[in-house]
Design a protein around this nucleic acid. Structure first.
Lengths: 236, 236
DNA sequence: AGTAAACGTTACATTTTTATGACACCCTAT
DNA sequence: ATAGGGTGTCATAAAAATGTAACGTTTACT
């Protein structure tokens, strides 16, 4: 899945450098040179993660972070702060303002990438490109493939899913053993504020189940009556 | 593919020594005794990698590194810094400026070569001159040739590819079993920020497939609907 | 048991995404 | 100049995926 990262950094050179390194890793990037700039951008495209320079010209980084956290639409976005100071107070203030992690400048590209991956793994598991193995299924986001390890070891049947079914399964597996309402699924799999019927989720669940049944994997996608759906390893 | 390495080093003796070692490994070398000198050279020939001395007479190495990173044409070039100091701060500053690696003097030719290869492998696997053998194909970047080893050993049919198809296949094979979006392919095969339609990728994929089919190699280049393309040995 | 709400299933029209062939342009070597 | 291969773009065909509505089943509760 393509992760979009917003970089809020006023120094063009560093901005470029960061963007370059992110692209090399396969992330999409959005660039903002100021907090205001960033806010405008966010109105159009909702990024999956924000890299925020602590020291910005107009608004201090922390102020921007607070604003992000205040609004419903943006308050769940993972946030990593970039700071030149090693001041313990700043670190605390940053984390208090809702930062998921922080990096002190100067930092190496490798460290940057490592921290981003760590935050994604924690906050947005469905975007972290990790292979998921659960309930006899093996989903690899990188090669975009799903296999069924039929109760043991021998045959690994390949499972062919359509784009939406793939994302759906990916999401459900990433957040296993949790119920998701149809609305939540629409929001997070289809995207922000799509105008789609709730019942459509049922249909895609059906399609997913059908394919899973065809390789003998039943009861993995479970209905929670009155609420929604859940991926679970225990039968029901 | 011949890798061209630019060596920016003011001391002629070391310059010579490095160039000699690189040549022995089969790299092409460009020499610059100063940053200005290097900039001029780069205007004519774009190197695939830059070896940069930290202490230069006119411009400090780090300044040159920043300049490299700032310009569109040069910002993706892998960069290795040579430094005499063992100061950790320098190391960090260098990495921040976009260096991929650094070597502290004095260093052995072997270490130098090893680091260059490591950086190339990481940054430009499709340039690392390694022969790739996958799915009954044998691609040799050095001789710029592709052969089809038809399911065994006997006949090695030579495959004739156009430049773009060759690079495309090379890239796909270098990153096998991974899905690539059309954008990623454009970025890494055509070059950063080229103004080319996404759909053009389809056409080149088509041309590549056509040629592969003609030697009985089908299903190696696979479509991942909704995402992009993938080179894979397993049928699909 | 009866009933309404929630969920499952199917069919289908539409939209979206890819595949493919044709074509014009641009180099390069003759 | 000119032939020829290589490229990018476009139009159109073909395939696949998607959202909805309609109808069948199950479930919870009276």
């Amino acid at each position: 899945m393509t992760v979009t990262i917003l970089v809020v950094e006023d120094e063009p050179a560093i901005q470029e450098l960061i963007a370059l390194n992110l692209k090399r890793e396969g992330y999409m990037t959005l660039s903002a040179l100021s907090a205001d700039n960033a806010m405008q951008l966010i109105n159009n495209v909702l990024p999956d993660l924000v890299l925020l320079d602590w020291m910005l010209p107009d608004t201090p980084g922390i102020e921007f972070a607070r604003r992000l956290r205040r609004e419903e639409r943006t308050k769940a976005i993972p946030l990593i702060m970039l700071t030149a100071r090693i001041d313990e107070n700043d670190k605390i203030a940053g984390l208090e303002a809702g930062a998921d992690d922080y990096i002190t400048k100067p930092f190496s590209p490798r460290e940057l990438i490592a921290r981003i991956k760590a935050v994604l793994r924690r906050r947005l598991p469905e975007m972290s490109d990790e292979v998921l193995e659960l309930g006899g299924l093996r989903l690899d986001p990188v090669s975009h493939r799903v296999h069924a390890c039929n109760d043991g070891f021998s045959d690994l049947a390949e499972i062919n899913l359509g784009p939406t079914e793939f994302r759906l399964l990916h999401f459900l597996m990433a957040y296993k053993e949790r119920v998701h309402t149809r609305e939540q699924l629409l929001d997070r799999i289809w995207g922000d504020h799509v105008f789609i019927e709730d019942r459509t989720v049922d249909v895609h669940i059906r399609r997913l189940r059908k394919i899973l049944e065809s390789v003998g994997k039943e009861n993995l996608v479970q209905t929670v009556r009155g609420t929604g759906y859940r991926f679970s390893v225990t039968p029901n």
